[in-house]
Write a protein that binds this DNA or RNA. Structure first.
Length: 280
DNA sequence: CTCCTGTCCTGCCGGC
DNA sequence: TGCCGGCAGGACAGGA
């Protein structure tokens, strides 16, 4: 499921192919995903892409008419580029296609339809309802231990849920929250306000380290996610605890017949994986 | 404010 | 073999 590293990887793929090219045609195969397609979507035809950007898990395609096409991949979305020399064969769940003036097609496929397509004036993005409440980017210099400490000092919720709260820090979803908490040696069930300064510091650097490594690996491919060229990400092979119930965690030297190995619990209706020894 | 729950959706997999 | 329940999960909206 696309989290920050996957979205970043997709953006890098788009950034290589789209800027300076004009959108020749917009094909809409349905009228909505999680929200209705914008009424003005067809009006982007004829406009050039100026730059590709990312905010949290949103893909931002800036256009030369001062508008930004906003895409979110939800949990099962992918964006694939089909170049002129390779014929594009439509597939099930291809909901929108942008045909560029050089023959490249940008195909948005999303079986579960939790993604979205929106359009907004570029200068108003920060005030847009999808962005106004968002916390800092985890890889920005303003995401610091001091910042996180201030934000969580009154929070009773579990630390795992806190790091997944987009108002505190963006881009960290279920997989990377579990991986970062493992790397920091913190029990995901701990109340957020109970973390000590040293632990918060470890957590911030663990989040940054895990995300950077995952971006390097092209993200994680579990079910639906692929890069814009159709290649899989390969960070899933480096998971320390995610989806490893009953198995050894990364670097495990325990007798898992005694410890039970990686535990799976439910928090906020989704699964959390953690090591009962290293995250005690 | 903070916290929690409901909602959206399809594909896959295990059990019977 | 086929059906069905359960699970996967991002993030908004709204209620307590």
């Amino acid at each position: 499921m696309p989290e920050l590293p996957e979205v970043e990887t997709v953006c890098r793929g788009l950034a290589k192919a789209l800027p300076r090219h004009a959108i020749k045609r917009v094909i809409q195969n349905r009228h909505d995903l999680r929200v209705p397609f914008p009424a003005a979507l067809k009006n982007i035809t004829g406009h050039r892409v100026t730059a590709i950007d990312r905010r949290a898990k949103y893909i931002l395609i800036n256009l030369d008419n001062q508008q930004t096409l906003i895409l979110h991949l939800g949990m099962s979305g992918s964006l694939m580029l089909h170049h002129k020399d390779k014929k594009y064969l439509p597939e099930k769940h291809d909901h929108m296609v942008l045909v560029m003036d050089n023959g490249t097609s940008v195909v948005l496929n999303d079986p579960r339809r939790f993604g979205l397509v929106a359009l907004a004036a570029t200068k108003d993005l920060a005030r847009h309802r999808f962005f106004a409440h968002l916390g800092p980017e985890p890889l920005d210099k303003n995401f610091t231990a001091a910042y996180l400490a201030e934000k969580i000092k009154t929070k009773k919720i579990a630390i795992k849920l806190a790091v997944m709260d987009q108002r505190l820090v963006v881009g960290v979803g279920n997989i990377y929250a579990a991986e970062a908490l493992f790397a920091a040696g913190i029990d995901p069930r701990r109340a957020a306000h109970s973390l000590k300064p040293a632990e918060i510091k470890k957590l911030v650097s663990a989040i940054q380290k895990v995300l950077k490594k995952a971006i390097k690996a092209g993200g994680s491919s579990l079910r639906d996610y692929v890069q814009t060229d159709g290649e899989l990400g390969y960070f899933q092979h480096q998971f320390a605890v995610y989806d490893k119930k009953g198995q050894k965690c990364k670097g495990c030297t325990c007798d898992i017949r005694k410890t039970g190995g990686v535990q799976r619990i439910t928090q906020g209706d989704r699964s959390t994986f953690y090591c009962p020894v290293k995250q005690a």
